[in-house]
């Protein structure tokens, strides 16, 4: 069931909706690299300084939080992104992602919500901020 505070009518703009925690594992990185065809040694176990996750993998953290916390309504259609990439995530990093609804508007009879997910590492450094606008039912 969709969280009522995340519906078009109930969303509180600018208030944090939820927070999630995830530890990046080498298995996660390996799975993502296999799926998308990344083969740089920097992604592999044993890389100097620790394996890094491909930047595009950080897009999944906010998505996962939004779906697991029932923030995104089924049938939501993503229309556009505004993303900022920070320090790389590494295997073993404990990441925290916060999700906020930052805008709400109607256009041509359709209703839109803009979600912003910011992921930080254990040192408080920003890994990525992913903001996307979606048509919501």
């Amino acid at each position: 069931m969709t969280n009522p505070l995340t519906t078009f009518e109930g969303a509180v703009i600018g208030r944090e909706v939820c927070q999630g925690h995830i530890v990046v594992t080498q298995d996660d990185i390996d799975s993502f690299c296999r799926l998308m065809g990344y083969d740089d040694p920097a992604y592999r176990a044993g890389a100097a300084g620790g394996a890094v996750a491909p930047t595009s993998m950080c897009l999944t953290y906010g998505l996962r939080l939004g779906w697991e916390e029932d923030v995104f309504p089924p049938g939501a259609i993503r229309m556009g992104d505004e993303n900022v990439y920070g320090v790389a995530a590494r295997a073993g990093d404990a990441l925290t992602t916060t999700l906020t609804i930052v805008d709400r508007f109607e256009r041509k009879g359709r209703r839109f919500l803009k979600y912003e997910m910011t992921t930080t590492n254990g040192a408080g450094e920003t890994v990525c901020t992913v903001a996307f606008t979606a048509i919501v039912p």
Binding site: D40, A42, V52, P54, G80, D81, N83, V84, Y85, V87
Partner: peptide
């Protein structure tokens, strides 16, 4: 580089 430089920005429309 294996990752985007820190501070990189991307805006896009589907």
């Amino acid at each position: 580089k294996p990752v985007m430089p820190a501070g990189s920005r991307m805006s896009l429309r589907y």
